[in-house]
Design a binder for these strands. Structure first.
Lengths: 273, 273
DNA sequence: CGTAGGGTTGACAGCTTTCAAGAAGTGTGG
DNA sequence: CCACACTTCTTGAAAGCTGTCAACCCTACG
């Protein structure tokens, strides 16, 4: 069977199985934390010999079953988590029970940072599939940062990246057009998958239409319609949760123009007959 | 003249004048950085005293004129900034020239954090009024964090707070109704002003309708209409950029219910005859 | 085999955007 | 001091788009 056509779920499973094996093989010395955050080509634990404390910290690797919350909004934020395998959604549950999806989180991303502000998680995290996370006690963070500069840099960069992504998310939702919003979502998602080393053209969405709709602030029917529209335009090929970006440039052009330009800039209109 | 009725612009000016004086009086020892980030009742140990000695921490206090960018999107991120007085907007300028307002930033907030990810600012910052910021070189951050634990904690909390706020922003924009979105914006803004020590009921918006609209993803006419609607409902009192929250509880009830609850939760509808 | 859940598509009502014009406040120059 | 231009804010009316409701297809699962 062609790997391009086989169900991607199987590939994902194999992927986290590999990731799991690698994590176990590391034996989890604290000096490898930078690697867990995505440090490329990092090795030689204890190379900074003068750091003392040769005993590796017993930070636990936690398994989270599908549809299971890793932590709930408002809970005491005792740990932050580095995703090793699998995917999560972060949610904000309204007082009326409505669940708003803030973001989708994948490998090497950090969960629970927003809890470091006042000691309580500002959002909850739910696994979209069977996942593994690496738990770091919040009280150890200052120590880790000061003792391993590499970790400090990685840790700071991870939070900064989250901030930048949050900005992109706001930008994403600032569009009125449902199709443009969906197109932007696909582009951002594809870029994140590319950063994680996945294919740039094909991507498998781990979340349902309902979650996407919640994330984008749309009705799930509108998301479905938008996918169909983008497919009819020849920009995408949609097969349930498998997306293929057919014309990347055209997709960018379509998604990037905001709308009725308030001032300056020529007017363009994407009218498809 | 009653401070509640006098033009707030004068109050704001007096405010930053006080802030400026305070900052200059501190003489900027690095150990006071935590205070700059909002540490309450912090006194600098071993500060050098006289204003004439240029020895301690030559971190500059920068003045930014109204409508002037502090830094541009994509520029090399050599410093992060702590706002001492005034207000900023952070913007994401699209390739088509459209300026999307990501956030409004006020005193004790940090600007430029998103540039720590890859060394380039992910968003630009423009002063809404004459403002002063304290510039911290990015290369000094690890040193500062490891040397002054109090600064490390404050710094981490500041970034975490930004993340939590980013989540709230996403939540804000997940609503369809323009009036609900505007109501949520007012609530969040009021809370931030309250955290900064301002009045909870009265607030003066430093930004124009166009900026609010860009931030909320609406047309500026819709923002104007929403304000009028909320005023007609008896929730707000709107006089140009001066907002008074008349019925805080009702405003919360109106803003917090998401909309047509997708599943579970009873259906409510805010129909105003 | 039948049910349940997710995804897609259609039709209508409602809301928002857009276009257009007027009102109010501000700054400049005579 | 006034007039003028300029910007911002507000309001009105029509067109377009999205949410809602409803139906149907498909797959997974018991």
């Amino acid at each position: 069977m062609n790997p391009m056509t086989m169900p991607l779920a199987a590939g994902a499973q194999a992927e986290w199985r590999r990731a799991q094996a690698r994590v176990h093989g590391l034996d989890l010395p604290p000096s490898a934390l930078a690697h867990l955050l995505g440090e490329p080509a990092f090795h030689a634990p204890g190379s900074q010999g003068a750091t003392g404390s040769p005993t590796p910290a017993p930070y636990p690797l936690v398994r989270v079953a599908e549809e299971t919350p890793l932590f709930l909004e408002g809970a005491p934020a005792r740990s932050i988590y580095v995703v090793q395998a699998g995917n999560f959604k972060t949610v904000l549950t309204g007082e009326d029970g409505y669940e708003h999806v803030l973001d989708f989180v994948t490998r090497h991303d950090v969960l629970g940072c927003d809890g470091l502000a006042d000691g309580h998680y500002a959002s909850g995290a739910v696994a979209l599939e069977e996942s593994w996370v690496f738990a770091l006690p919040a009280v150890d963070l200052p120590h880790l940062g000061s003792q391993w500069p590499q970790f400090h840099a990685r840790w700071q960069a991870a939070m900064a990246r989250q901030l930048a992504r949050a900005g992109e998310k706001t930008w994403l939702m600032a569009t009125v057009g449902a199709e443009k919003r969906t197109a932007r979502f696909i582009l951002l998602h594809a870029r994140r998958m590319a950063e994680a080393g996945q294919s740039t053209r094909r991507l498998h969405l781990r979340m349902g239409r309902r979650d996407i709709a919640s994330h984008l602030g749309l009705a799930h029917e509108s998301v479905s319609r938008s996918f169909s529209m983008l497919a009819d335009m020849g920009l995408l090929r949609v097969d349930n949760r498998d997306i293929e970006i057919v014309d990347s440039e055209a997709l960018h052009n379509f998604a990037l123009c905001t709308r009725g330009y308030p001032e300056a800039a020529p007017r363009r209109r994407a009218s498809a007959p």
